[in-house]
Amino acid sequence: MANTLSRDEILKLAKLSKLILSEKEIDEMQKELSSIIEFVSKLSDADVGDLEVSDQVTGLKTVLRDDKSINYGYNLDGLMSNVPKREGDYIKVPKMLSES
């Protein structure tokens, strides 16, 4: 069965997804994603007319709370304890641009 997705499409998707794939992963993804996309393409025949989309099921609209500060019990030390690199209460990140 021919693959629905090309190798270039897989590479583009990986780039958009911020993932690097090995050669083996590229081959597998091409095969697997093609069969999954083919499977979900069953929907193309479904007659939906101009039905509204459902992106939720509760019917709730713009749930707001009172404009008062709430103590959620989060503490800075706890939040910062998982940060891989920090300086004091600042989070260190790698530089935006490499020198090359």
């Binding site: 499409e9 993932l19 597998e28 993804m29 697997e32 994603l33």
Partner: peptide
Amino acid sequence: SEGFGAEAKRRIMIGTY
């Protein structure tokens, strides 16, 4: 790429598509 396993990567890619 190191933190996600095969299935998470697959779903991220399909979702992105």
